[in-house]
């Protein structure tokens, strides 16, 4: 019995706060990726506006109901359009936006490689 009580106390002292922190972190992550539509360049996490406060309440409700992050984003996108999320989902309209950084990275690396090789060849000659 004593062992059970010991583990019970350990659970509430150490593990329960961890769970609540997980939820807080998840909420904060979601707030940071949501745009405050009535503010200038602020996320829901940064804003104290009435709109941000209401969105926070709704997100909390959804998290309490066990909805996933993607489900919450989909819900808000269906109500406010994709403008409400900072990280848009992949679509044919923004394909370039997603692919370009990788393209630039690969092509840039290739150009640097060619330039270095040329300069090496020139030095060797």
């Amino acid at each position: 019995m004593k062992v059970k009580i010991f583990f019970f106390i350990i659970y509430f002292l150490f593990l329960a706060p961890l769970y609540s922190n997980d939820e807080k972190t998840k909420l904060l992550e979601i707030y940071k990726n949501l745009r405050c539509l009535v503010c200038q360049g602020q996320s829901i996490a940064d804003s104290n506006s009435d709109f941000a406060a209401t969105i926070k309440l709704v997100v909390q409700d959804h998290v309490n109901k066990g909805k996933t992050t993607d489900e919450i984003y989909s819900f808000l996108i269906s109500k406010y359009g994709e403008w409400i999320v900072y990280q848009p989902t992949l679509s044919k309209n923004n394909l370039i936006l997603w692919v370009l950084p990788y393209f630039v990275f690969i092509v840039g690396g290739w150009i640097i490689f060619i330039i270095l090789r040329k300069s090496k060849d020139n030095k060797a000659n």
Partner: peptide, 13 residues
Amino acid sequence: IDGKISILFGIYG
């Protein structure tokens, strides 16, 4: 009262 219904309708002001 708390504005949650307004979110269902995509209201922001």
